[in-house]
């Protein structure tokens, strides 16, 4: 075991794993996290805690992880390279590991332009690829990137993200390969709506044998309404929702669209479960955590396995 995390144990045992995410609040109220975590509990193998997503200031990811764990859910800390240089990143990695966080997701982070502080200085001292490499070096070699020995190596199951729908497409699989080379153990994908593109992406990844080198968790986000689908498709960089998907939910009367969104999400998880090379699913029910049990249960993925 590289980290001994629950997520690592479940995936290593060959189970189809489930992760979800909790976005910390825009404030210091810990109950917001506790309430979200209560919906997540028992439905997942680990729960991502986001790191100032869309560059909007929120409670720190590490604090969120502690609150999530307090509720009985295994946390997965997201770490972006936008706001911290390599000194701060290393320091936070040591701190997170010392506090018992065992899963990590290495990300670039959205540009600060999108948040409330577009005038902030961006850091990007190292990129997400290099963060993966840095954590692996610290974990496996017990040394800082500088070569200095660590007093206790951090233990993380190292994750990365990929967006199979961003451009240019032909660099997407080579970029996943690079992340594997850098040291990623698992990958969570961007929300998938365009199954056709995703199937092609998986075929290309499998040709390179990548599914055997990394655990691929397919990302899904249930649509709450046709409006949300149209908004995401138009406004969120790298999200691709085909017309047919939007039409399916738009054809429902407004009051039934949420229900349809959940039905479509469950259907999609069933489909993903059958795909070779998919090791699990990452359910991003954004501000809709109360539906996780229905979605994950509906997909036949409960109860979650317990592996000692």
């Amino acid at each position: 075991m590289k980290s001994g995390s629950n997520l690592e144990r479940v995936l290593s045992a060959g189970h189809f794993s489930v992760t979800a995410e909790c976005g910390p609040p825009r404030g210091a109220d810990p109950d917001v996290v506790r309430e979200k975590a209560a919906y997540v509990k028992d439905n997942v193998d680990a729960c991502n805690v986001t790191d100032n997503q869309t560059s909007v200031v929120r409670m720190s990811s590490l604090a969120g992880c502690m609150l999530v764990r307090e509720t009985g859910v295994e946390p997965l800390i997201q770490m972006v390279v936008r706001d911290r240089n390599r000194i701060a990143l290393q320091s936070d990695l040591l701190g997170a590991s010392a506090l018992g966080v065992r899963n990590l997701l290495c990300l670039s982070g959205d540009h600060q332009k999108f948040g409330d502080d577009p005038q902030a200085k961006n850091v990007f001292d190292i990129d997400s690829m290099q963060l993966i490499h840095m954590v692996k070096t610290m974990r496996d070699e017990g040394v800082f990137p500088s070569g200095e020995k660590l007093e206790g190596a951090p233990k993380f199951y190292i994750g990365c993200a990929v967006n199979p729908f961003a451009d240019p497409y032909d660099i997407r699989v080579p970029r996943l390969k690079l992340k594997i080379d850098a040291g990623a153990d698992f990958v969570q994908t961007q929300c998938i709506y365009n199954m056709e593109t995703f199937i092609k992406y998986m075929e290309d990844a499998k040709k390179e044998g990548l599914h055997e080198k990394i655990k691929i968790l397919a990302g899904v986000t249930p649509l709450k309404s046709a409006g949300m689908a149209k908004f995401m498709n138009r406004m969120v960089a790298g999200i691709d929702i085909p017309e047919a998907v939007i039409k399916r939910i738009a054809d429902e009367p407004k009051e039934k669209q949420a229900e349809k969104g959940i039905e479509m999400c469950i259907e999609q998880i069933h489909e993903l479960k059958e795909m070779e090379g998919i090791a699990g699913v990452h359910v991003m029910a954004i501000e809709w955590e109360e539906k996780l049990n229905e979605i994950i249960g509906g997909a036949g993925l409960l109860p979650r396995p317990v592996i000692e």
């Binding site: 982070g109 959205d110 990129d127 997400s128 993200a161 990929v162 961003a166 451009d167 240019p168 660099i171």
Partner: peptide
């Protein structure tokens, strides 16, 4: 690159345009 990354493009690249504009 708006993020000065060394292993791009990031997930925000769409049709050859950067996520910032």
């Amino acid at each position: 690159c708006a993020k000065s990354i060394f292993h791009g493009p990031c997930g925000g690249s769409v049709e050859g345009k950067c996520e910032i504009s």
